[in-house]
Amino acid sequence: MGTIALNGGLEKTAFFYQSVVGKKVVMAVTGCVLCLFVLGHMLGNLQIYQGPEKLNRYAEFLQGLGAGLWAVRLVLLACVGLHILSAYQLWRLKLSARPTPYLKKSYVATSYAARTMIWSGPIVLAFIIYHLLHFTTGQAHPDFRRGDVYHNVIAGFSNPAASLFYIAANILLAIHLYHGAWSMFQSVGINHPRYTPWLKRLAKAYAWVIGIGNVSIPLAVLTGVVK
């Protein structure tokens, strides 16, 4: 076995993806895109604190992008798909790599977030589906008015059950990001003793910001800060 058979582009990609390293890189790159989206999404939504007009105008602006919006949506969908696919495959690989579990296992360094990625992931996915049906398409909304985002938010979050689910899911999302946002740098090969500690801090700060920002909206509606 002197040489490695690798041919053109597609085969190369497939080979790359088949290896454990490749899957992790795919995971990291898609994760990075989604991280940026989550940040932008949150910043947009925080405009709710500036009143109905501001938020609804922002929504109009997004809708006005037309094909551009769909392009972004497709990219995000592809990223979510690839992220989930590689997560699923890596999870299967994990199960097959240690078929007999330990009777007793302790962790020295593994954070809670890192250990629960495989659980926080699917729950966040379930949340996203609900979220789309809730605020984008409206099927899961009690009083959905197309175009009046502000109203939809206030009305939607007035239901304590929905709000609590949002809060729980966003805490999980933050936990997912707490590990994921640093991890993606490591997966694509960025690690340097001088910068990695800062990257880790940045990633943690990012997770906190996303968590607090997203949780604040249902909380504000529930407590009547935003009406």
Partner: peptide, 16 residues
């Protein structure tokens, strides 16, 4: 490639 073939798992950057 060999590592994958031997059936080892993947790295999730836990640092363990």
């Amino acid at each position: 490639l060999k590592m994958t073939e031997e059936g080892f798992g993947y790295c999730t950057n836990t640092g363990e």
